[in-house]
Design a protein around this nucleic acid. Structure first.
Lengths: 228, 228
DNA sequence: AGCCCGGTTTGATCGATGTCAAATCGGGCT
DNA sequence: AGCCCGATTTGACATCGATCAAACCGGGCT
């Protein structure tokens, strides 16, 4: 599945260093991790790995988006997480199991850094800085995955979309305009919706001042969204 | 919220040591953690902590079940996880944030061990054994929470119930009989269902040989459940 | 600028699950 | 053993979201 790779160059090392995962590190710990990183480019729709394969590596997204999903027996897919640039994924397998428990697919052309699980596991038990970085990443992911469960169980489609828009707006108040960073397709999966349901959710938000044109979303009043 | 506590006694230290979280530890790391543990007894329905409170401690269940849940703006509750004896909960806040992101409630009379987050955080950055135990616990929880998301998105109510029963059966094949460890109420929340939906799921499983009487479930053929 | 294809929206329909209310059951207690 | 209360089941209904099909649009290409 994986293409040609190369060791991370200066620019890529810079990107990696600014990542939440690595930004707390310095000195030898950082250097050893950066040295062990291999960068791959993958075409849209290519699989980084598939469920069931031996878990040999975890990854950090440098550019593009990566989709984590699982396939049911009858072939339907459910997204687990959409990984943005800077996100680490499959790090739960450093101390978590022998095989990948889900598949990872490039949602568009992506560039990702690969870390060897074995190596990083050894690094983690030697260097508490590395362990701390891993614990922080795991905690963050666990909290956001718990949020995902709760959102699914508690909110309707329009509420989830409103939620997403609010978070994307940052602290903006009053009117706002945002551009989706990826296809609506992906957003739908990320929110646990069929594409049609996402579309209908957007159109139901129209009556409270949300306008959609392509990837650009105009929000009349962010406060109004919070009421949903 | 919390009652009188006492330092873990011999029996309780034994229970804790057999826990997945602590079973990999030994020597001073184990001793220091056990020494720092305080044991609380709580009545059914009492809250261990509530969402929004400062996250000062995480816990390990010694006996009984603890429910982690969040409340929506309109007062509905969604369960995030049901913690069984031996489970650790809220450990995602050791390196994860200032406040509890969900509430924890005793589902019945429970006994829990409390660990100070500050203390354990310091222990974790000194002792890689401790860090490893935390990473393993976090990884396990992250994986099971991802499973939860996928189950919600991919499976219907009868499928989720069948799944639960299969896992409870262990590797049993053919006929099996199991006793639910808690009220159906709790099971419903754990599977993301209303109690009525759980009840209907059980009755839809009747036609493939599942019989329910109180907490006792008779399964005619475990293989048949897997087909659902 | 116009074309074209894949992504998106819309419409119609169905199945699944939440909700409310009432009937029933089960387990613990005396 | 029988009683009683809360848990569970059942029924009726409303709602949400999935699915399939068809129309539409937008962005990238020439």
């Amino acid at each position: 599945m994986l293409d040609k790779s190369h060791k991370a160059n200066i620019r890529e090392r810079g990107l990696l260093t600014k990542t939440p995962f690595l930004s707390a590190l310095s000195g030898t710990a950082l250097a050893r991790l950066l040295d062990s990183a291999h960068v791959y480019s993958m075409a849209a729709r290519a699989n980084v790995f598939r469920e069931g394969e031996p878990a040999l590596a975890f990854y950090c997204v440098l550019s593009g988006y990566v989709r984590l999903y699982r396939v049911s027996r009858d072939g339907r897919q459910a997204d687990i997480r959409i990984c943005a640039p800077g996100d680490v994924f499959a790090e739960c397998l450093i101390f978590g199991g022998e095989k990948y428990r889900f598949s990872a697919q490039a949602a568009e052309n992506v560039s990702i850094a690969r870390f060897d699980i074995q190596e990083v596991r050894e690094l983690a038990v030697q260097d508490t800085q590395v362990a701390k970085a891993i614990m922080t990443a795991l905690s963050t992911h666990l909290l956001s995955t718990m949020d995902c469960v709760v959102n699914d169980r508690l909110h309707t489609a329009p509420q989830r979309v409103a939620d997403y828009l609010i978070n994307r707006c940052g602290a903006a108040t009053g009117a706002a305009s945002i551009r989706l960073p990826f296809q609506k397709n992906l957003l739908a999966g990320m929110l646990g919706l069929a594409p049609e349901a996402l579309s209908r959710a957007f159109s139901s938000l129209r009556r409270i001042g949300v306008t959609v044109r392509g990837r650009v979303i105009q929000i009349g009043d962010v406060e109004a969204l919070r009421q949903i």
